[in-house]
């Protein structure tokens, strides 16, 4: 594994594009001198263009307007600090979000097709292994052709063991085998890769429920983490995804992938603000160590640093 470049630097590298789009826009905006309707309209445009979403944008702007009034702010430049604080308060990662690392944990990684679940599982396994955990991954995506082979290769790279599967088998049985193996081998973290499923497909959501039931029944003492993987390029539909997945399973984290493109990542702000699910990790590249803990301050700071 290549040397750890440090979160901040990597994030900034990964976010270069995010900044040049989203943030240069913000900086230009804050060069405006007066806080008038045009100012807010422009701010709205920038946020919406960043995939923050109409509703969340409205909430943010209403809040900002209140702050401006309360603090008797006249100049646009002063607004900047206010906006940063506002976004930070929205994106705060709750305390104990990473406590699972100190317990026996089963992590279910779920999401719609093509968001990068298998890659995320591979990177997560690498990360946890690095930090000295005994990791097992389970290839419970038995639908997509060669998903198992893909995870086998990631497991090799990460140097962790894997419970593999054959295409077409019942994913719940794979989860069962994995849980049994995890208990027998006394692993710290079991990470289950699952098939991509659109959140509006009832049968697939039932399948997810079934997998959860197996873990509940067979491994009740384990701590549970269920993370939905969201593609940063996804628009407002990511909200629906998180919402629907949340109905079937207790979501306690978001992994935001593909943050190294030009996607502005604003959807993360929308989801966290509307659904109160914290972003725990973000993916900013294709390397095995390009998955990093999400840090609100650094994330927002990086957004605003030139």
């Amino acid at each position: 594994m290549e040397e750890n470049k440090g979160f901040f630097k990597r994030l900034r590298e990964g976010l270069t594009k995010t900044r040049s789009g989203f943030v240069s826009g913000l900086n230009n905006l804050f060069k405006a001198s007066e806080i008038d309707d045009d100012f807010y309209e422009e701010l709205e445009e920038i946020l919406v263009m960043g995939d923050v979403g109409v509703k969340t944008t409205e909430t943010i702007i209403e809040g900002l307007k209140d702050d401006v009034k309360k603090n008797h702010i006249k100049e646009a430049a002063e607004c900047r600090e206010l906006l940063i604080n506002r976004l930070k308060s929205v994106m705060e990662v709750p305390e104990g979000a990473y406590d699972y690392l100190d317990r026996k944990t089963v992590v279910m990684v779920i999401g719609v097709n093509g968001v990068g679940k298998t890659t995320t599982v591979g990177k997560l396994a690498g990360r946890m292994k690095e930090s000295g955990k005994k990791v097992l991954v389970a290839a419970a995506d038995t639908f997509r052709a060669a998903a198992n082979d893909q995870l086998v290769k990631w497991a090799e790279r990460a140097g962790v063991s894997i419970v593999s599967s054959v295409e077409g088998t019942d994913p719940a049985s794979v989860v069962y085998d994995a849980v049994t193996a995890a208990k027998a081998r006394d692993v710290d973290v079991l990470i289950c890769d699952t098939a991509g499923r659109l959140h509006n497909k009832k049968n697939l959501m039932e399948e997810l429920r079934k997998m959860n039931k197996i873990v509940d029944r067979e491994f009740p003492e384990a701590h549970r983490e269920t993370w939905v993987v969201l593609d940063a390029t996804t628009g407002q539909n990511a909200l629906n995804q998180a919402r629907e997945f949340g109905l079937v399973t207790d979501l306690n984290g978001i992994v935001l992938t593909k943050m190294d493109g030009t996607a502005k990542g604003g959807i993360a702000i929308a989801i966290t603000s509307e659904l109160n699910i914290p972003v725990k990790y973000i993916g900013v590249g294709e390397g095995i160590d390009d998955l990093q803990r999400f840090d609100t301050d650094e994330f927002i700071d990086a957004l605003f640093t030139n």
Binding site: V48, M49, G50, D51, V112, G114, D231, T233, T234, G235, Q236, N237, A238, G261, T262, A263, K264, I267
Partner: peptide, 27 residues
Amino acid sequence: DAMTGQDAVNVASEFNEKVGLDGVILS
């Protein structure tokens, strides 16, 4: 991907300008 957000314009125009596109499949 039909679920792509605002970034769809950047992706499409970059691919179009650099590689040259003749059509699109919406997934």
